[in-house]
């Protein structure tokens, strides 16, 4: 076998679950998206101004 790994989309329901019909709660999904949008709106004020330089200058020595 050339490739050991395979892509599997497993959606096995565990036997102990009764798989109840859950109505899709769209309001929760919308709230999550709104929260993320709010964060993305303000994120530029939080991020370092020169991302390129900030990332380049962050060099560590290995530890442990």
């Amino acid at each position: 076998m050339v490739e050991q790994e395979r892509i599997q989309k497993q959606r096995v329901t565990r036997p102990t679950e009764s798989a109840p019909e859950v109505p899709v709660d769209t309001s929760k999904g919308e709230q999550l998206k709104a929260d993320l949008d709010d964060l993305l709106d303000e994120i530029d004020e939080v991020l370092e101004e020169n991302a390129e330089e900030f990332v380049r200058n962050y060099v560590q020595k290995g530890g442990e």
Binding site: L40, I43, E48, A51, V55
Partner: peptide, 26 residues
């Protein structure tokens, strides 16, 4: 990942954009 993906999509950035690495660091 949500912030990284959200920011990348909002500004149409490439996967190797320094701003995404800055988000990771911060």
């Amino acid at each position: 990942k949500r912030i990284v993906d959200g920011y990348r999509e909002r500004y149409g950035l490439g996967a190797d954009d320094a701003r995404l690495r800055a988000i990771d660091l911060q």
